[in-house]
Structure formats: C-alpha cells, structure tokens
Amino acid sequence: MAGNAKAIDGGGDETVTVPATETQRSSGLDGNVVGALSSVLWLVTGITFCVVDDREFVRFHAAQSIVFSGVLVTRVV
C-alpha cells in the first residue's frame, strides 16, 4: 500500500484499499479531546489547534477559545 492508504476488510475475499486524504490535517487526537484542550490554555491552544487541525468541530472550539480569551483579556485590562 502506498503512503497513508488504509486497507478495509469487507468480510469477504476482497480487500478494498482507500487512499487517505492528504488535504485534511489532523492533530491525531479525538475531536472531543481537542475541543476540551482548546479551552485549557485559552489563546495558546486555541491558535495552535486552529492552525494544526482542519476538522470543523475542532476549529469551532479553537475559535471560540480565541474569542473568549480575547474578550477576557480586554475586560481585565
């Protein structure tokens, strides 16, 4: 198999090879874990996961973390 292709066993005599999409970037962690980690260090992890991961769920929580930390900093300062 080439690159990141995955072999899927359909239960029969044949194995189907599905090429991995090279355009989607992922942190390698589950989406729920990354969404929770985005809130841990607010701006730092928000920017990191927004750049590193292309999943919509993760990017939403990363952006939410960035906005929340920005609002919090402006209210405190």
Results as ranks from 00 to 15, higher is better:
2 A>C: 02
2 A>S: 07
2 A>W: 04
3 G>Y: 00
3 G>P: 00
4 N>Q: 09
4 N>E: 11
5 A>S: 13
5 A>G: 07
6 K>A: 14
6 K>N: 13
7 A>T: 06
8 I>S: 11
8 I>R: 06
9 D>V: 01
9 D>F: 03
10 G>A: 08
10 G>Y: 09
11 G>D: 01
12 G>S: 15
12 G>L: 14
12 G>I: 11
13 D>M: 05
13 D>C: 00
13 D>N: 08
13 D>R: 03
14 E>I: 11
16 V>S: 05
16 V>D: 05
17 T>R: 04
17 T>M: 10
18 V>T: 08
19 P>E: 03
19 P>M: 01
20 A>C: 06
21 T>I: 02
21 T>A: 04
22 E>V: 00
22 E>T: 00
22 E>D: 00
22 E>I: 00
23 T>G: 00
23 T>A: 07
24 Q>M: 04
24 Q>E: 09
24 Q>L: 08
25 R>F: 00
26 S>P: 03
26 S>V: 14
27 S>P: 01
27 S>I: 03
28 G>S: 02
28 G>V: 04
28 G>D: 05
28 G>N: 04
29 L>Y: 12
29 L>W: 12
30 D>C: 06
30 D>M: 07
31 G>W: 15
31 G>R: 15
31 G>M: 15
32 N>C: 04
32 N>G: 07
32 N>S: 06
33 V>S: 13
34 V>Y: 01
34 V>S: 02
34 V>R: 04
34 V>E: 02
35 G>C: 14
36 A>K: 14
36 A>W: 05
36 A>T: 10
37 L>D: 03
37 L>W: 06
38 S>C: 15
38 S>N: 14
38 S>W: 03
39 S>F: 09
39 S>N: 12
39 S>P: 00
40 V>Y: 11
41 L>C: 09
41 L>S: 12
42 W>M: 12
42 W>L: 13
42 W>P: 05
42 W>R: 08
43 L>M: 11
43 L>G: 11
43 L>A: 13
44 V>L: 04
44 V>Y: 01
45 T>S: 15
45 T>I: 03
46 G>Y: 04
46 G>Q: 05
46 G>F: 03
47 I>W: 07
48 T>K: 01
48 T>S: 03
50 C>L: 09
50 C>N: 06
52 V>L: 09
52 V>N: 02
53 D>Q: 11
53 D>I: 11
54 D>S: 14
54 D>I: 07
54 D>C: 06
56 E>K: 10
56 E>M: 08
57 F>T: 13
57 F>A: 13
57 F>V: 14
57 F>Q: 13
57 F>R: 10
59 R>P: 03
60 F>T: 10
61 H>S: 09
61 H>K: 14
63 A>E: 02
63 A>N: 06
64 Q>N: 13
65 S>E: 12
66 I>S: 02
66 I>G: 02
67 V>H: 01
67 V>T: 06
68 F>N: 10
70 G>V: 04
71 V>W: 11
71 V>T: 15
72 L>M: 08
72 L>G: 05
72 L>R: 11
73 V>W: 12
74 T>F: 08
74 T>I: 12
75 R>C: 14
75 R>I: 14
76 V>G: 02
77 V>F: 13
77 V>H: 09
